[in-house]
Design a protein around this nucleic acid. Structure first.
Lengths: 209, 209
DNA sequence: TACCGCTTTATGTCTGCACATAATCTGATG
DNA sequence: CATCAGATTATGTGCAGACATAAAGCGGTA
């Protein structure tokens, strides 16, 4: 029983992180090979591999076959942003969520939208605009173009009850995307919709999925 | 020669993703066990394990020992945000990067800052403000508090040449952090510093590291 | 019924091995 | 000197087996 306390990949990970942050291994340094580290830590190479792999995924190490593993020169800080469903975000605030569908029609998208969605210029898309409210007060305004070809079912879905976002999240295929954040001044129409003063700063999220 | 085309964990991952997005496995459904899937795909359990683990890391599956693996009910969309060093961001735009240190002194931080940094109220901190410019035009304004106790070396570093951010990224230990994004209206002083009109929308990033 | 402890089971991880793959390095050749 | 083919090597991944661990579920007891 007991136990010889084996070395876990988390142990290795911790030790390696320590050596990086303590600058025992400096940026751009080549670190020992997996085999060497495995010998040093007294564990299997697979264990070292997993440790190094997770660290590399975090961006602190750069690995290349044959070349070896080196400490990243410019540790790109990565942050994981969780994009909640608006309903949950609002309910988490303790507010009551409602949403109102302002518009739902099919039309040819603008050129900018077509470019982002990589659509043929003949294709049309479903355009939705909606207002999400917390306790009856406008919280967010949504302006969405949906590529009907990619998600045929949405044409027949009833979006007055469930928001388009939620519908898509639960019904649609999933793929990578692209996101950009920005701050803009409220235009007059936006101000009206969101019930704020024109010129107030708004936080916008632009996504392509 | 040939080869018997083995099943890779990426194959398994792709197939599982397909079953999720095609709704063959619906949200909240319990999916087969690793052993069963391994048998079905004709590969080792470890292979299935890795596939499912990566999918779970992406938030599409939820796994619990003994309980099994199920399709996430609310697939939280996660986005990885890369926070570049400002200098690189600016140079990537093809502009020339310069920065100007506006202020550098040690003083007791405000209460709000102390709270975020979990500092004793006796501790003092290094306060830096700087302006980052692209082609001579103000691009970003930085207001930074550094916990000197955590990074003693910074007190003697020359920050007029290298920005504090860059110095920290290359010299300091690394740890988890916290980030929040927001849009605000430019105040008069900020507008002056960044050379914009007061009231213009600004994008702010607040971080604790 | 309520509670507690044991069994069962699905996932988590380590090991040791093998082979695949990418990329560097070497040396031969023109 | 330039170039290219082949040897070398570090990482990437697959496999089978074993044990660890969390937690659900079962059964017995009060």
């Amino acid at each position: 029983m007991t136990g010889v306390e084996r070395t876990t990949w988390q142990d290795v990970r911790a030790e390696v992180l320590h050596r990086i942050t303590s600058r025992r291994w400096k940026p751009d340094d080549l670190i020992p090979t997996e085999v060497e580290l495995a010998a040093e830590f007294g564990c299997a190479r697979a264990t070292v591999n997993r440790a190094l792999r997770t660290i590399a995924e975090d961006g602190l190490l750069e690995r290349r076959r044959k070349a070896g593993t080196r400490v990243a020169r410019h540790p790109v800080r990565r942050a994981t942003l969780r994009i909640p469903i608006l309903r949950h975000e609002i309910e988490d605030l303790g507010a009551r969520y409602t949403h109102r569908l302002l518009r739902q029609d099919r039309r040819a998208p603008t050129k900018a939208v077509r470019a982002r969605m990589a659509l043929a210029h003949t294709a049309d898309a479903l355009r939705l605009t909606a207002l999400h409210m917390a306790d009856g007060k406008p919280y967010a305004f949504e302006d969405r173009w949906v590529n009907v070809a990619a998600v045929p079912d949405i044409a027949t879905a009833d979006l007055s009850d469930m928001s388009a976002n939620e519908w898509l999240v639960t019904h649609a295929p999933f793929s990578g995307g692209d996101i950009s954040l920005a701050a803009v001044s409220a235009t007059r129409t936006m101000a009206l919709r969101l019930d704020v003063t024109p010129g107030d700063a708004l936080f916008t999220i632009e996504r392509t999925t």
